[in-house]
Nucleic acid binder design. Structure first.
Length: 121
DNA sequence: AACATGACGGTAG
DNA sequence: TCTACCGCCATGT
């Protein structure tokens, strides 16, 4: 109820929030990856805008969303990028630089949920 | 209906 | 590899 979904079909923002809520702890994804998963590959900017308006009460892990290069482009939303970096470090997310995570090691793609592993890891 | 906004992405130099 | 530009999109006025 408070995600702009009052008129029936979920809005773009609402779908973004659902996806973000599924990002596993210790992993991160990108604005573009979310946009592609929603069927609008060119709407990366809109994804970022949606996150900037994410309701606090939803307690979404928006710190797990970075840009295509792993940089914490939304870091200032917490007052200072150090706060976002701290949240990620607490989850043992690997960093390449103070404000850049190692995407090669922790990138999570929404599609992964569609590939159910046949064997338990 | 047009214009401005904003936590992006791809490409060229 | 880094910077500058330009193109894309959903919303609110």
């Amino acid at each position: 109820m408070g995600r702009g979904s009052g008129s029936g079909r979920p809005t773009f923002f609402a779908r973004v929030f659902v996806l973000v809520s599924r990002i596993p702890r210790g992993r991160v994804t990108t604005y573009g990856a979310i946009a592609r998963a929603l069927g609008t590959p060119r709407a990366a900017r809109s994804v970022g805008w949606a996150l900037s308006l994410a309701p606090q009460e939803d307690a979404l892990p928006c710190h797990r969303v970075v840009d295509r290069n792993g940089f914490l482009s939304g870091g200032w939303h917490w007052g200072h990028p150090d706060v976002m970096a701290g949240l990620l470090r607490d989850e043992d997310v690997p960093f390449l630089d103070p404000y850049r995570v190692d995407l090669a090691a922790c990138l999570w793609l929404p599609d992964e949920d569609d590939f159910e592993p046949r064997l338990p890891v």
